[in-house]
């Protein structure tokens, strides 16, 4: 704290290298900031995708979302340990396991919370909040609170150097998975019978029963899909991030803001908002002291909802 002035002075020269030509390095540094922010943003979007889907379908905020992410990471960790196969190949299994977890959580917890006559929203929040604590406790019981990571993977620690701009392979892969997941989600919702049932249920859960759609079945699959998407996110994260029972927290908050910024009910909004948040975070960190980089995200959210109270692309 005594060197505040020094700090402020330094801020202006951040991102400029000292010895090389200033112009090229500035461009490179800038490009690196943008690219890193973009890749991180795609991963934020991927984490938020499941939350967005569940929310859009049934107006439920899943407070255990961060813990779902944590479970997916541990699932990947455990599978790699047991099968000695690379995480990239195990992704479908993790997504499948998470689909099952999501369906079970809907049938076992959320379905009952939805019966509440008063303040169903808050009941769901706290039922899933309780669930989140249980999941953290279970992770600590079965895996101990040690910090884990998966060593020696195909992608882990490898970086693509594009003329001085560094693109880590795990994040590149994560970005690709993220885009693929959103494309898949779009096709599912717009091109399949299930997608139409999903949309119809979202519009009017009561009326769909009349046309023979089993609301409960749609919700169960919806939760499964949402959790399965978190499974993909967790699989990617497990390659380049550490794993422990509390790992989900910081990501969950970003995911909530991402979904709200994009607009509740809009899958595309989550993608756009994820990327925007990644970029804003990276840019804020170069303008403000780095410990305040989240302020940029918060300010962006407030600025958007004050102008557009339903987020960027929301319809709810």
């Amino acid at each position: 704290m005594p060197c505040r002035e020094h700090r402020l002075l330094r801020l202006r020269v951040k991102g400029l290298a000292q010895d090389n030509g200033l112009k090229t390095m500035t461009f490179q540094a800038l490009a690196q900031i943008v690219v890193s922010g973009l890749l991180m943003g795609l991963i934020y979007a991927l984490i938020a995708a499941g939350l967005s889907l569940i929310f859009g379908l049934m107006d439920v905020v899943n407070f255990a979302h961060g813990e779902f992410l944590m479970m997916a990471m541990y699932a990947m960790f455990g599978l790699v340990l047991a099968l000695a196969v690379d995480p990239v190949l195990l992704m479908p299994i993790v997504a499948g396991l998470m689909f099952a977890l999501g369906a079970i959580v809907y049938l076992g917890v959320v379905r009952h919370a939805m019966r509440a006559k008063v303040n169903a929203g808050m009941v769901q929040v706290f039922a899933t909040f309780g669930l989140a604590i249980v999941l953290r406790g279970l992770a600590q019981l079965f895996f101990t609170p040690d910090f884990r990571s998966i060593p020696n993977t195909w992608l882990g620690g490898k970086t693509l150097n594009l003329g001085g701009i560094f693109l880590p392979w795990p994040q590149l892969f994560g970005g690709a998975v993220s885009i693929a997941a959103f494309v898949g989600l779009y096709l599912l919702i717009s091109r399949t019978d299930f997608g139409r049932a999903l949309a119809a249920t979202r519009e009017d859960a009561g009326a769909v029963a009349l046309v023979g759609i089993d609301r409960n079945k749609v919700f169960t699959i919806g939760w499964g899909l949402g959790a399965g998407l978190v499974g993909l996110a967790g699989s990617v994260m497990a390659i380049f991030f550490y794993i422990h029972p509390d790992v989900g927290g910081p990501f969950a908050l970003t995911a909530y803001v991402t979904v709200a910024l994009g607009g509740f009910g809009s899958i595309f909004g989550a993608l756009a908002a994820g990327v925007i948040i990644g970029l804003i975070e990276a840019i804020t960190a170069t303008i403000l002291p780095t410990e305040m980089k989240s302020l940029g995200i918060y300010a962006a959210y407030l600025a958007v909802v004050f102008v557009r109270p339903r987020g960027l692309f929301g319809n709810i």
Partner: peptide
């Protein structure tokens, strides 16, 4: 240090929320 307190605490919150949704 095994997280058992978290499991009990979380489960009870969940149960109360589901059992008496109106409080």
């Amino acid at each position: 240090g095994q997280g058992i307190d978290l499991i009990i605490y979380g489960a009870l919150i969940m149960l109360i929320a589901l059992w008496k949704p109106e409080g």
